[in-house]
Amino acid sequence: MRHLLGIEGLSQGQITDILDLAEQYVSRNRQPDKHVGGLAGRTMINMFFENSTRTQASFEIAGKRLGADVLNMSMATSSVKKGETLIDTALTLNAMHPDLLVVRHQNSGAVALLAEKVNCAVINAGDGRHEHPTQALLDALTIRRRKGRLHRLTVAICGDIAHSRVARSNILLLGKMENRVRLVGPRTLMPTGVDKFGVEVFEDMREGLEGADVVMMLRLQKERMDGGFIPSEREYFHRWGLDAEKLGYAKDEAIVMHPGPMNRGVEIDGEIADDINRSVIQEQVEMGVAVRMAVLDLLSRPTHNGRESLLA
Protein backbone atom coordinates (compact mmCIF):
# COMPACT_ATOMS: atom_id res chain seq x y z
CA MET A 1 0.00 0.00 0.00
CA ARG A 2 1.59 3.17 -1.17
CA HIS A 3 -1.23 5.62 -0.48
CA LEU A 4 -4.52 5.50 1.34
CA LEU A 5 -6.87 7.12 -1.16
CA GLY A 6 -10.04 5.27 -0.34
CA ILE A 7 -11.63 2.19 1.11
CA GLU A 8 -12.35 0.96 -2.38
CA GLY A 9 -8.85 -0.35 -2.97
CA LEU A 10 -8.58 -2.19 0.36
CA SER A 11 -9.18 -5.88 0.90
CA GLN A 12 -10.89 -7.41 3.91
CA GLY A 13 -7.48 -8.54 5.17
CA GLN A 14 -5.95 -5.10 4.85
CA ILE A 15 -8.82 -3.53 6.74
CA THR A 16 -8.40 -6.07 9.53
CA ASP A 17 -4.63 -5.45 9.64
CA ILE A 18 -5.14 -1.70 10.01
CA LEU A 19 -7.72 -2.18 12.75
CA ASP A 20 -5.53 -4.70 14.62
CA LEU A 21 -2.61 -2.33 14.60
CA ALA A 22 -4.85 0.57 15.63
CA GLU A 23 -6.04 -1.50 18.55
CA GLN A 24 -2.50 -1.55 19.88
CA TYR A 25 -2.29 2.21 19.62
CA VAL A 26 -5.54 2.60 21.55
CA SER A 27 -3.94 1.12 24.68
CA ARG A 28 -0.76 3.07 24.07
CA ASN A 29 -2.71 6.33 23.81
CA ARG A 30 -4.24 5.72 27.22
CA GLN A 31 -0.88 5.65 28.95
CA PRO A 32 0.82 8.76 30.30
CA ASP A 33 3.76 8.39 27.89
CA LYS A 34 2.14 8.33 24.50
CA HIS A 35 5.28 8.69 22.49
CA VAL A 36 6.15 5.98 19.98
CA GLY A 37 9.26 6.76 18.02
CA GLY A 38 8.45 4.96 14.77
CA LEU A 39 8.27 8.02 12.59
CA ALA A 40 11.19 9.98 14.07
CA GLY A 41 12.85 12.06 11.39
CA ARG A 42 9.91 11.77 8.99
CA THR A 43 8.10 14.85 7.77
CA MET A 44 4.35 14.85 7.56
CA ILE A 45 2.41 17.70 5.98
CA ASN A 46 -1.26 18.32 6.57
CA MET A 47 -2.77 20.06 3.54
CA PHE A 48 -6.34 21.00 4.24
CA PHE A 49 -7.92 22.84 1.32
CA GLU A 50 -11.16 22.66 3.25
CA ASN A 51 -11.13 23.75 6.87
CA SER A 52 -11.44 21.04 9.48
CA THR A 53 -10.35 21.48 13.05
CA ARG A 54 -11.12 17.98 14.21
CA THR A 55 -9.66 15.82 11.49
CA GLN A 56 -6.60 18.00 11.17
CA ALA A 57 -5.97 17.89 14.93
CA SER A 58 -6.46 14.13 14.94
CA PHE A 59 -3.88 13.63 12.19
CA GLU A 60 -1.51 16.09 13.82
CA ILE A 61 -1.65 14.31 17.16
CA ALA A 62 -1.28 10.93 15.46
CA GLY A 63 1.81 12.12 13.61
CA LYS A 64 3.37 13.73 16.67
CA ARG A 65 2.82 10.70 18.87
CA LEU A 66 4.68 8.66 16.29
CA GLY A 67 7.52 11.17 16.47
CA ALA A 68 7.09 12.73 13.01
CA ASP A 69 7.69 16.39 12.30
CA VAL A 70 4.23 17.66 11.50
CA LEU A 71 3.52 20.76 9.48
CA ASN A 72 0.01 22.14 9.09
CA MET A 73 -0.69 24.12 5.96
CA SER A 74 -3.90 26.02 5.93
CA MET A 75 -4.49 25.92 2.22
CA ALA A 76 -7.62 28.04 2.40
CA THR A 77 -5.44 31.08 3.09
CA SER A 78 -2.32 30.20 1.12
CA SER A 79 -1.07 30.60 -2.42
CA VAL A 80 -3.94 28.48 -3.69
CA LYS A 81 -5.97 31.63 -3.29
CA LYS A 82 -3.45 33.38 -5.51
CA GLY A 83 -4.32 31.07 -8.37
CA GLU A 84 -1.70 28.38 -7.95
CA THR A 85 -3.05 25.07 -9.18
CA LEU A 86 -3.37 22.04 -6.99
CA ILE A 87 -0.69 20.25 -8.95
CA ASP A 88 1.80 23.11 -8.68
CA THR A 89 1.22 23.28 -4.95
CA ALA A 90 1.81 19.55 -4.76
CA LEU A 91 5.01 19.78 -6.77
CA THR A 92 6.29 22.62 -4.61
CA LEU A 93 5.71 20.67 -1.42
CA ASN A 94 7.07 17.52 -3.00
CA ALA A 95 10.38 19.28 -3.57
CA MET A 96 10.69 19.66 0.20
CA HIS A 97 10.77 15.86 0.52
CA PRO A 98 7.90 15.15 2.85
CA ASP A 99 7.30 11.50 3.72
CA LEU A 100 3.58 11.75 4.28
CA LEU A 101 0.98 14.10 2.86
CA VAL A 102 -2.43 14.25 4.46
CA VAL A 103 -4.83 15.96 2.10
CA ARG A 104 -8.38 17.17 2.30
CA HIS A 105 -9.93 18.82 -0.75
CA GLN A 106 -13.41 19.99 -1.73
CA ASN A 107 -13.36 18.20 -5.11
CA SER A 108 -13.90 14.49 -5.63
CA GLY A 109 -10.78 12.86 -7.06
CA ALA A 110 -8.50 15.77 -6.17
CA VAL A 111 -6.44 13.77 -3.67
CA ALA A 112 -5.86 10.98 -6.19
CA LEU A 113 -4.78 13.58 -8.75
CA LEU A 114 -2.28 15.00 -6.28
CA ALA A 115 -1.02 11.54 -5.36
CA GLU A 116 -0.01 10.95 -8.99
CA LYS A 117 2.30 13.93 -8.90
CA VAL A 118 4.27 13.34 -5.71
CA ASN A 119 6.62 10.59 -4.61
CA CYS A 120 5.60 10.29 -0.99
CA ALA A 121 2.68 8.54 0.64
CA VAL A 122 -0.63 10.37 0.39
CA ILE A 123 -3.54 9.93 2.77
CA ASN A 124 -6.97 11.05 1.72
CA ALA A 125 -8.50 13.02 4.57
CA GLY A 126 -11.66 13.60 2.55
CA ASP A 127 -12.16 14.49 -1.13
CA GLY A 128 -15.41 16.14 -2.18
CA ARG A 129 -18.26 13.67 -2.00
CA HIS A 130 -16.03 10.76 -2.81
CA GLU A 131 -14.23 9.12 0.13
CA HIS A 132 -13.02 9.69 3.68
CA PRO A 133 -11.26 6.40 4.41
CA THR A 134 -9.84 7.11 7.87
CA GLN A 135 -13.31 8.06 9.09
CA ALA A 136 -14.72 4.73 7.92
CA LEU A 137 -11.80 2.90 9.54
CA LEU A 138 -12.26 4.65 12.86
CA ASP A 139 -15.97 3.94 12.70
CA ALA A 140 -15.18 0.29 12.01
CA LEU A 141 -12.80 0.12 14.97
CA THR A 142 -15.41 1.68 17.24
CA ILE A 143 -18.05 -0.80 16.07
CA ARG A 144 -15.70 -3.74 16.41
CA ARG A 145 -14.77 -2.81 19.97
CA ARG A 146 -18.37 -2.20 21.03
CA LYS A 147 -19.99 -5.09 19.21
CA GLY A 148 -17.14 -7.57 19.44
CA ARG A 149 -17.23 -8.15 15.69
CA LEU A 150 -17.37 -6.33 12.38
CA HIS A 151 -19.52 -8.66 10.34
CA ARG A 152 -23.18 -9.68 10.18
CA LEU A 153 -24.31 -6.46 11.79
CA THR A 154 -27.16 -4.29 10.62
CA VAL A 155 -25.93 -0.72 10.25
CA ALA A 156 -28.31 2.13 9.47
CA ILE A 157 -26.62 5.19 7.97
CA CYS A 158 -28.99 8.14 8.25
CA GLY A 159 -29.22 11.58 6.73
CA ASP A 160 -27.51 13.37 3.87
CA ILE A 161 -26.07 10.40 1.99
CA ALA A 162 -25.85 12.25 -1.33
CA HIS A 163 -23.25 14.77 -0.24
CA SER A 164 -21.42 12.55 2.21
CA ARG A 165 -18.00 11.04 1.63
CA VAL A 166 -18.27 9.49 5.10
CA ALA A 167 -21.32 7.55 3.92
CA ARG A 168 -19.57 6.34 0.75
CA SER A 169 -16.51 5.09 2.59
CA ASN A 170 -18.64 3.45 5.24
CA ILE A 171 -20.89 1.74 2.68
CA LEU A 172 -17.78 0.32 1.01
CA LEU A 173 -16.10 -0.77 4.22
CA LEU A 174 -19.17 -2.27 5.89
CA GLY A 175 -20.04 -4.05 2.65
CA LYS A 176 -16.55 -5.51 2.31
CA MET A 177 -16.78 -6.80 5.88
CA GLU A 178 -20.14 -8.45 5.11
CA ASN A 179 -22.61 -6.38 7.04
CA ARG A 180 -26.14 -5.32 6.13
CA VAL A 181 -26.13 -1.65 5.29
CA ARG A 182 -29.28 0.43 5.32
CA LEU A 183 -29.51 3.99 4.13
CA VAL A 184 -32.15 6.19 5.67
CA GLY A 185 -33.07 9.70 4.61
CA PRO A 186 -35.12 11.95 2.37
CA ARG A 187 -34.99 11.04 -1.31
CA THR A 188 -33.52 14.42 -2.18
CA LEU A 189 -30.46 13.49 -0.15
CA MET A 190 -30.00 10.02 -1.66
CA PRO A 191 -27.46 9.62 -4.46
CA THR A 192 -28.86 8.55 -7.85
CA GLY A 193 -28.51 4.85 -8.50
CA VAL A 194 -27.98 4.11 -4.81
CA ASP A 195 -29.95 0.87 -5.24
CA LYS A 196 -26.92 -0.48 -7.11
CA PHE A 197 -24.69 -0.03 -4.07
CA GLY A 198 -25.71 -3.27 -2.39
CA VAL A 199 -27.69 -1.51 0.32
CA GLU A 200 -31.30 -1.22 1.43
CA VAL A 201 -32.86 2.22 1.19
CA PHE A 202 -35.50 3.55 3.56
CA GLU A 203 -37.45 6.76 3.48
CA ASP A 204 -39.10 6.04 6.81
CA MET A 205 -36.65 6.27 9.66
CA ARG A 206 -38.53 3.94 11.98
CA GLU A 207 -38.53 1.18 9.38
CA GLY A 208 -34.89 1.84 8.65
CA LEU A 209 -33.86 1.58 12.29
CA GLU A 210 -35.93 -1.53 13.01
CA GLY A 211 -33.59 -4.07 14.56
CA ALA A 212 -30.41 -2.15 13.76
CA ASP A 213 -27.20 -2.85 15.71
CA VAL A 214 -25.59 0.45 14.78
CA VAL A 215 -27.19 3.81 14.03
CA MET A 216 -24.83 6.11 12.21
CA MET A 217 -26.00 9.70 11.90
CA LEU A 218 -24.56 12.10 9.33
CA ARG A 219 -24.15 15.81 9.62
CA LEU A 220 -26.60 17.90 7.63
CA GLN A 221 -24.69 20.82 6.13
CA LYS A 222 -26.22 24.22 6.81
CA GLU A 223 -26.36 25.06 3.12
CA ARG A 224 -28.66 22.09 2.45
CA MET A 225 -31.26 23.34 4.91
CA ASP A 226 -32.41 26.36 2.96
CA GLY A 227 -35.34 24.71 1.25
CA GLY A 228 -33.27 23.46 -1.68
CA PHE A 229 -33.06 19.86 -0.52
CA ILE A 230 -35.40 19.75 2.46
CA PRO A 231 -38.19 22.15 3.39
CA SER A 232 -36.79 23.22 6.76
CA GLU A 233 -34.62 22.29 9.70
CA ARG A 234 -37.57 21.48 11.92
CA GLU A 235 -39.27 19.32 9.32
CA TYR A 236 -36.00 17.44 8.93
CA PHE A 237 -35.72 16.87 12.65
CA HIS A 238 -39.34 15.79 12.79
CA ARG A 239 -38.85 13.09 10.15
CA TRP A 240 -35.16 12.15 10.28
CA GLY A 241 -33.78 13.57 13.51
CA LEU A 242 -32.66 10.85 15.93
CA ASP A 243 -34.61 11.02 19.17
CA ALA A 244 -35.39 8.46 21.85
CA GLU A 245 -38.65 7.45 20.21
CA LYS A 246 -37.11 6.62 16.82
CA LEU A 247 -34.07 5.01 18.44
CA GLY A 248 -36.53 2.75 20.24
CA TYR A 249 -36.99 0.84 16.97
CA ALA A 250 -33.33 -0.20 16.91
CA LYS A 251 -32.02 -3.03 19.05
CA ASP A 252 -31.88 -2.27 22.77
CA GLU A 253 -28.11 -2.42 22.76
CA ALA A 254 -27.74 -0.48 19.50
CA ILE A 255 -25.01 2.13 19.49
CA VAL A 256 -25.31 5.65 18.12
CA MET A 257 -22.51 7.17 16.06
CA HIS A 258 -21.85 10.56 14.49
CA PRO A 259 -18.73 11.74 12.61
CA GLY A 260 -19.11 15.23 14.06
CA PRO A 261 -19.46 18.08 14.31
CA MET A 262 -23.07 17.59 15.39
CA ASN A 263 -26.06 19.82 14.81
CA ARG A 264 -28.00 19.14 17.97
CA GLY A 265 -31.70 19.40 17.33
CA VAL A 266 -31.29 18.97 13.58
CA GLU A 267 -30.09 15.45 12.92
CA ILE A 268 -29.71 14.31 16.52
CA ASP A 269 -31.38 15.06 19.80
CA GLY A 270 -28.89 16.41 22.34
CA GLU A 271 -29.87 13.88 24.99
CA ILE A 272 -29.17 10.94 22.71
CA ALA A 273 -25.81 12.40 21.74
CA ASP A 274 -24.82 12.65 25.38
CA ASP A 275 -26.27 9.32 26.55
CA ILE A 276 -23.20 7.40 27.63
CA ASN A 277 -25.02 4.10 27.32
CA ARG A 278 -25.88 4.56 23.66
CA SER A 279 -23.67 7.24 22.14
CA VAL A 280 -20.11 6.29 21.16
CA ILE A 281 -19.38 9.66 19.59
CA GLN A 282 -16.52 10.49 21.97
CA GLU A 283 -15.05 7.05 21.50
CA GLN A 284 -15.06 7.61 17.72
CA VAL A 285 -12.83 10.63 18.26
CA GLU A 286 -10.46 8.56 20.39
CA MET A 287 -10.35 5.76 17.81
CA GLY A 288 -9.64 8.38 15.16
CA VAL A 289 -6.19 9.08 16.58
CA ALA A 290 -5.37 5.38 16.91
CA VAL A 291 -6.51 4.52 13.39
CA ARG A 292 -4.57 7.40 11.91
CA MET A 293 -1.46 6.32 13.81
CA ALA A 294 -1.87 2.85 12.36
CA VAL A 295 -2.27 4.19 8.83
CA LEU A 296 0.72 6.53 9.14
CA ASP A 297 2.76 3.70 10.57
CA LEU A 298 1.87 1.23 7.83
CA LEU A 299 2.46 3.72 5.04
CA SER A 300 5.88 4.57 6.42
CA ARG A 301 7.23 1.04 6.67
CA PRO A 302 9.87 0.44 4.07
CA THR A 303 10.21 -3.12 2.82
CA HIS A 304 12.46 -4.91 0.41
CA ASN A 305 10.80 -3.34 -2.63
CA GLY A 306 10.80 0.34 -1.89
CA ARG A 307 7.80 1.81 -0.21
CA GLU A 308 5.60 -1.28 -0.34
CA SER A 309 4.51 -1.82 3.21
CA LEU A 310 3.48 -5.04 4.87
CA LEU A 311 -0.09 -4.36 3.91
CA ALA A 312 0.31 -4.22 0.18
Partner: peptide, 15 residues
Protein backbone atom coordinates in the same frame (compact mmCIF):
# COMPACT_ATOMS: atom_id res chain seq x y z
CA UNK B 1 -24.30 11.60 -15.99
CA UNK B 2 -26.41 10.83 -12.90
CA UNK B 3 -26.33 7.20 -11.95
CA UNK B 4 -24.48 4.71 -9.79
CA UNK B 5 -21.13 5.47 -11.41
CA UNK B 6 -21.27 9.25 -10.88
CA UNK B 7 -22.60 8.68 -7.37
CA UNK B 8 -19.70 6.39 -6.59
CA UNK B 9 -17.18 8.95 -7.84
CA UNK B 10 -19.03 11.71 -6.01
CA UNK B 11 -19.24 13.92 -9.08
CA UNK B 12 -21.87 16.58 -9.74
CA UNK B 13 -24.13 15.12 -12.40
CA UNK B 14 -27.12 15.75 -14.64
CA UNK B 15 -29.85 13.19 -15.27
Amino acid sequence: TSGPFASKLGLPSAP
